[in-house]
Design a protein around this nucleic acid. Structure first.
Lengths: 130, 130
DNA sequence: GTTTGTGCAAATATTTTGCACTTGA
DNA sequence: TCAAGTGCAAAATATTTGCACAAAC
């Protein structure tokens, strides 16, 4: 039985994920965790993320460029957000348009049990001003 | 104006894609093309695929492992895919609704340089029938 | 004390790039 | 002719792995 050890690095990574609103790359998570007290190697970030994904505690999506993005699984209500790729500021988004879109899609394609992941990134007004 | 030159390599790559039923990786396409008379370098396969993708003549999807898969496609517009989580079958989706949504979002939030990752999964009619 | 996790550096895999050479129009 | 395309090898990017050491239990 593989019991997870409660190491300082694992704690730091879980906190980093908890502090993050949406999806985050391994590289960015590594940077975010490094900013705090503990230092964690990138290899350990990957190792922990892999365990968390296997345990079903973390979600993964692939960007178009082949980069994996991770987030702790949300059990709460389904919603989306837009986050600034420079400063990390996030804005919540009500997406009735998107929900309608998926519903329509099911009818048109014959697929059912549809689910979607939408990750939006951009540059916020403050960062743009610089 | 970028006019595409009709090189032997480009022809071989297009024929390779035409001979392929579904999606194919750059590596496999390179191997398939090499089997025929002409030899084409892997770098050229990538270069041509990139042009074809930019021209909207070829589709790309990402595997879970971050490998790009290509296939010649009918639609020219930017679009996404809905894939069956059981058998992997993929359907093209034109998403003018989504594009409009992101454009609107930019105006409403003041964010610019928006990009999105949209992952759609469901169960296809064939798998549902079982 | 044993087993799991960590960190480093090196390996792997995919894709891109710099640059000299070739070729299509 | 000459810009666009090609091929090679090297670089860039993302992720994994081997192995010695450290730490959790």
């Amino acid at each position: 039985m593989a019991t997870e050890r409660n190491t300082a690095q694992r704690r730091a990574i879980l906190e980093g994920l908890a502090r993050t609103a949406g999806f985050i790359s391994a590289r960015d998570l590594h940077a975010a965790v490094g900013g705090q007290g503990t230092t964690v190697s990138l290899a350990t970030v990957y190792a922990q993320l892999r365990r968390l994904v296997e345990a079903g505690q973390v979600d993964v999506v692939m960007t178009e460029r082949g980069e994996s993005l991770f987030r702790r699984c949300a059990t709460d209500a389904h919603h989306h957000h837009l986050s600034c790729r420079e400063c990390g500021a996030t804005v919540d988004i009500d997406a009735p348009l998107l929900e309608r879109f998926t519903a329509e899609l099911g009818e048109r394609t014959g697929y059912d049990d549809l689910s979607h992941v939408l990750e939006l990134t951009g540059r916020c007004p403050a960062c743009r001003a610089q």
